[in-house]
Write a protein that binds this DNA or RNA. Structure first.
Lengths: 203, 203
DNA sequence: CAGAAAGCAAGAGCACCGCTCTCTCAATCA
DNA sequence: TGATTGAGAGAGCGGTGCTCTTGCTTTCTG
């Protein structure tokens, strides 16, 4: 039943977005009366959280299918896979990286899933130090987390910043902010990734 | 009356976010019965659009207070002003750059306001070509819009990408995605901006 | 100046929402 | 066999966006 609910919720989100997910609509589609669904997910937020984790895993799996290779090419492939995934599953992307529900705070359960996604990019790009991110305070701050990923702290900082850039352009693209300038964003994205390869010292 | 509604809506959004804006709550606070508010804003989305424009103008004004100076310093000041504004008015930031309502398409009225914001960064950073963004297809695509801002096309592409990076890190920071790694994000942001100054050739 | 027209607000109501509470019924366990 | 548990049903509460009709007041017009 739980799995059935999640499946329906996924199609609902694909159609109406996370903000439009209705407990009653989901219940209706799995053949339950509206109140019965709260036996499986005590709250709309709980169902949303489960969907967020599913989406992270979905994205993680897509990135996991990127074949190994030289660092530069691997970064390119990851970036393009990321964008393709976001464009194909825009609402799942928004679920993860978009505006959270007003009072929403990411529950601890989502952290490992999020880390797995970041891990792909860290493994590909955070192997060596990156001069611009080599300041003492930043390196100190990231020493511990970088250790968990066997990454260089300044490299990790740089990768985080570049991952944010990827999320940024994809978010702008999906939200229509680039219409009138760099939409479609293929060329801009391509150039950005090339600049990243250079910045991260992967070439 | 319209102004009064907008004022109340602004405080409501500051407290509950755009997704939590309730027409009835706004009506109540301005002393109207719920149906009367639709005389001024025919739809919730219309009120939200007005708020989006207000937020753009609010951000535009903040960026406008950044004093002129050398390009590199100007870019730094703009970037830090942007982040400060976003942190101070997080819900307004999310309103602009966050997940749009499912079927929402930015109405033409918001375009000039959005362009004004981008204009500050373009004026500061898109004066000269940027090698990594100098590919034919991209330059061709951006030739026309760059003309409107008296910017170099490849410089404009680079600035758009860097603006996306700023939006990306600020968005991640506000959403709590950096908790456990680069939160607080001061150092990361500082390093990012320095890298941008270098990438854009402003040093 | 009287009457028509227009603008504004109120009120009731529709279909939806998240969520709670109580009840029934069937399966399971002691 | 009897008690306990679990799943689902149903009614209901207070909230939502939005519509439609009604009435009052202000303004314009002949």
């Amino acid at each position: 039943m739980t799995a059935q609910i999640l499946a329906v919720a996924r199609t609902e989100i694909a159609e109406h977005g996370g903000g439009g997910l209705s407990m009653r609509a989901v219940a209706r589609q799995v053949g339950l009366v509206s109140s019965a669904i709260y036996r499986y997910f005590p709250t709309r937020e709980a169902l949303l959280t489960a969907m967020i984790i599913e989406s992270y895993e979905h994205l993680d799996a897509a990135l996991g299918r990127v074949s190994a290779g030289q660092p530069a090419q691997r970064w390119r492939d990851l970036a393009h896979t990321f964008r393709s995934w976001a464009r194909q599953y825009r609402h799942e992307f928004q679920l993860i990286y978009g505006t959270p529900v007003p009072g929403y705070v990411a529950p601890p359960a989502t952290v490992p899933a999020a880390a797995a996604v970041a891990g792909h990019f860290l493994a590909a790009g955070a192997g060596q130090p990156v001069p611009a991110f080599d300041h003492d305070a930043l390196v100190t701050q990231l020493a511990a987390p970088a250790g968990e990923f066997a990454a260089d702290p300044s490299g990790m900082a740089a990768v985080l910043a570049e991952l944010a850039a990827l999320i940024g352009v994809v978010g702008l693209e999906l939200s229509g902010h680039l219409v009138g300038s760099a939409d479609p964003a293929d060329h801009l994205f391509e150039a950005l990734v090339e600049r990243q390869v250079h910045t991260l010292g992967l070439a």
